[in-house]
């Protein structure tokens, strides 16, 4: 009974997202139209991608608060390169963004792995360092739309089979993660390391190296999102995506990724991100001031974490035969 409840955590979240859609739709028809839903998804794509990277990190009992700063830094680098050398192909810029993001993520990872510094300290530090570096590079000035090449701005918006490329990238990342997390040894290692680090050692899994991998992947995705964000909004400045790391963590927590590690699914993280995305897009439609958004997502985090903790609470050791579940 408890098990079935647990298994349907994603189902409950899906229900919540759908209920939200129905409520908004019933009052402001047109919100749940396919075209608008696709727009909402597109708008949430970056949050989904970052939440998936964060999911890996949280699965291993760590946290990465530097993702938004990483995004801002890589985004600024691609924008400045594009402005200075419009001839560089977009593909090269994307590869550069992913590469730089990977390096920034790996730096977090190496501090956690080799020096054993608590992840929250490491990423709190790199959060300010990466963001400050954006200022050093740009000298506080903006890279505006007119300075960017057309190709640079067009890529994420190009429509392919009636969806923008940005949405397709998000879908591809989701699909890739769904397979990698459930069906590759590294994917399972994230769960093992977070679930019981002590036991992971006995299984031959290197705890530090696995955490390093999680930070590196999270960094790579943040780098990818750096380009996507800046090109989509066609502007780069120091405060791009300021505080967005908290939205990312919020999406994971709402999606049922346990901060204690070892528990959570790709589907949960995606739904958590979508939940926030739907709220963000529904508020203006419903005529509610966007100033409500922050409080709503804060309340959603608290409710989600309370709910998840309730449903996974252990009654104690299982000793009485009658309390054991066997086949």
């Amino acid at each position: 009974m408890i098990l079935r409840f647990l298994k349907s955590r994603e189902a409950i979240l899906l229900g919540a997202v759908l209920a939200l859609l129905v409520i908004v739709e019933s009052r402001f028809s047109g919100f749940a139209a396919p075209g608008n839903l696709a727009a909402v998804f597109n708008d949430t794509s970056i949050l989904i991608i970052l939440a998936l990277g964060q999911t890996l990190v949280i699965l291993t009992r760590c946290i990465d608060l530097s993702v938004a700063s990483n995004l801002a830094l890589t985004g600024m680098v691609t924008a400045m390169l594009n402005a200075a050398f419009p001839g560089i192909p977009v593909v090269v810029l994307i590869a550069l963004a992913v590469g730089l993001g990977t390096l920034l993520g790996a730096f977090n990872g190496i501090l956690v792995w080799k020096l054993d510094i608590p992840p929250i300290v490491v990423t709190l530090g790199t959060l300010t360092i990466y963001r400050g570096t954006v200022f050093l590079l740009s000298d506080g000035s903006w890279v505006n739309s007119h300075e960017m090449s057309a190709a640079y701005k067009a890529f994420p918006r190009a429509v392919l089979f009636s969806l923008p490329v940005l949405s397709w990238i998000a879908l591809a990342v989701v699909a890739g993660f769904a397979v990698a997390v459930t069906r590759t040894p590294l994917g399972r290692a994230f769960y093992a390391v977070g679930g019981n680090p002590h036991a992971a050692v006995y299984t031959g899994i290197d705890v530090g190296r696995t955490r390093f991998a999680a930070f590196t992947i999270s960094g790579a995705l943040a780098g990818l999102c750096g380009y996507l964000w800046v090109s989509r909004y066609a502007v780069a400045y120091v405060d791009v995506a300021g505080g967005f790391e908290l939205d990312v963590v919020a999406a994971c927590v709402i999606g049922g990724i346990s901060i204690a590690g070892g528990m959570g699914t790709v589907g949960g993280a995606v739904l958590g991100a979508l939940f926030l995305g739907v709220i963000k897009n529904a508020l203006p439609v419903a005529g509610i001031s966007p100033f409500w958004q922050l409080a709503i997502s804060g309340a959603a985090i608290i409710i989600a974490v309370a709910f998840n903790a309730r449903s996974s609470r252990q009654p104690g050791h299982i000793i009485l035969k009658s309390a054991e579940r066997t086949a």
Partner: peptide, 18 residues
């Protein structure tokens, strides 16, 4: 409720400022 303080206060930080 026995919730982890880091998550709770990430939530309340948005809630209070919100």
């Amino acid at each position: 409720l026995g919730l982890p303080s880091i998550v709770v206060t990430i939530g309340t930080m948005s809630l209070f400022r919100g």
